[in-house]
Deep mutational scan, measured.
Amino acid sequence: MDETGKELVLALYDYQEKSPREVTMKKGDILTLLNSTNKDWWKVEVKITVNGKTYERQGAVPAAYVKKL
């Protein structure tokens, strides 16, 4: 869990989004888990830093590609 009490997951593999509802992640990324009720796809929040600014993006990733921490 992070400092706000939200559950975290670890990306076990790289994943490139294939639709606007998904998010890209790299192996080793730590993501915030938002919903894991679907056994195949979990909704997560990814933090992306671009030019020193951090953005948050929500989307789905394959459940088999992440592990709860």
Results as ranks from 00 to 15, higher is better:
Met1Gly: 13
Met1Trp: 13
Asp2Cys: 15
Glu3Pro: 13
Glu3Gln: 14
Glu3Ile: 13
Glu3Tyr: 14
Glu3Ser: 12
Thr4Leu: 12
Gly5Leu: 11
Gly5Ser: 12
Gly5Phe: 12
Lys6Tyr: 13
Lys6Ile: 11
Lys6Asn: 10
Lys6Ser: 10
Lys6Thr: 10
Glu7Arg: 10
Glu7Pro: 09
Leu8Lys: 12
Val9Lys: 02
Val9Asp: 02
Val9Tyr: 05
Val9Ala: 09
Val9Arg: 01
Leu10Ile: 15
Ala11Gln: 00
Ala11His: 02
Ala11Val: 09
Tyr13Gln: 12
Tyr13Phe: 12
Tyr13Thr: 08
Asp14Arg: 02
Asp14Glu: 04
Tyr15Arg: 00
Tyr15Glu: 02
Tyr15Met: 00
Gln16Lys: 11
Gln16Gly: 06
Gln16Phe: 13
Gln16Met: 12
Lys18Asn: 09
Lys18Glu: 07
Ser19Lys: 05
Ser19Val: 03
Ser19His: 09
Pro20Trp: 08
Pro20Tyr: 08
Arg21Asp: 15
Arg21Ser: 13
Arg21Cys: 15
Arg21Trp: 15
Glu22Arg: 03
Glu22Lys: 03
Val23Lys: 01
Val23Gly: 01
Val23Leu: 10
Thr24Lys: 03
Thr24Glu: 00
Thr24Pro: 06
Thr24Ser: 15
Met25Arg: 02
Lys26Phe: 09
Lys26Thr: 07
Lys26Gly: 04
Lys27Glu: 05
Lys27His: 05
Lys27Ala: 12
Lys27Ser: 06
Lys27Phe: 03
Lys27Trp: 04
Gly28Tyr: 05
Gly28Phe: 03
Asp29Ile: 03
Ile30Asn: 00
Leu31Asp: 00
Leu31Thr: 01
Leu33Tyr: 01
Leu34Gln: 02
Leu34Cys: 07
Leu34Thr: 04
Leu34Ile: 15
Asn35Trp: 04
Asn35Glu: 15
Asn35Asp: 15
Asn35Ser: 13
Thr37His: 10
Thr37Trp: 07
Thr37Asp: 15
Thr37Glu: 14
Asn38Val: 05
Asn38Lys: 06
Lys39Gly: 10
Asp40His: 13
Asp40Cys: 14
Trp41Cys: 06
Trp41Gly: 01
Trp41Val: 02
Lys43His: 15
Lys43Cys: 15
Lys43Pro: 02
Glu45Val: 11
Glu45Thr: 09
Glu45His: 06
Val46Gln: 11
Lys47His: 11
Lys47Trp: 08
Lys47Pro: 05
Lys47Ala: 09
Ile48Asp: 04
Ile48Met: 10
Ile48Asn: 06
Thr49Met: 11
Thr49Gly: 05
Thr49Arg: 08
Val50Pro: 00
Val50Phe: 08
Val50Trp: 08
Val50Thr: 08
Val50Met: 11
Asn51Ala: 10
Asn51Glu: 11
Asn51Thr: 03
Asn51Val: 04
Lys53Gly: 08
Lys53Asp: 10
Lys53Pro: 02
Thr54Ile: 11
Thr54Glu: 10
Thr54Cys: 14
Thr54Arg: 06
Thr54Ser: 11
Thr54Pro: 08
Glu56Pro: 14
Glu56His: 15
Glu56Cys: 15
Glu56Gln: 14
Arg57Tyr: 07
Gln58Arg: 10
Gln58Gly: 04
Gly59Trp: 07
Gly59Ala: 04
Gly59Val: 06
Gly59His: 01
Ala60His: 15
Val61Pro: 03
Val61Lys: 00
Pro62Ser: 03
Pro62Lys: 05
Pro62Ile: 06
Pro62Arg: 04
Ala63Asn: 03
Ala64Leu: 08
Ala64Tyr: 09
Tyr65Trp: 06
Tyr65Glu: 04
Val66Asn: 00
Val66Ile: 07
Lys67Thr: 13
Lys68Met: 10
Lys68Leu: 14
Lys68Trp: 06
Lys68His: 07
Lys68Arg: 12
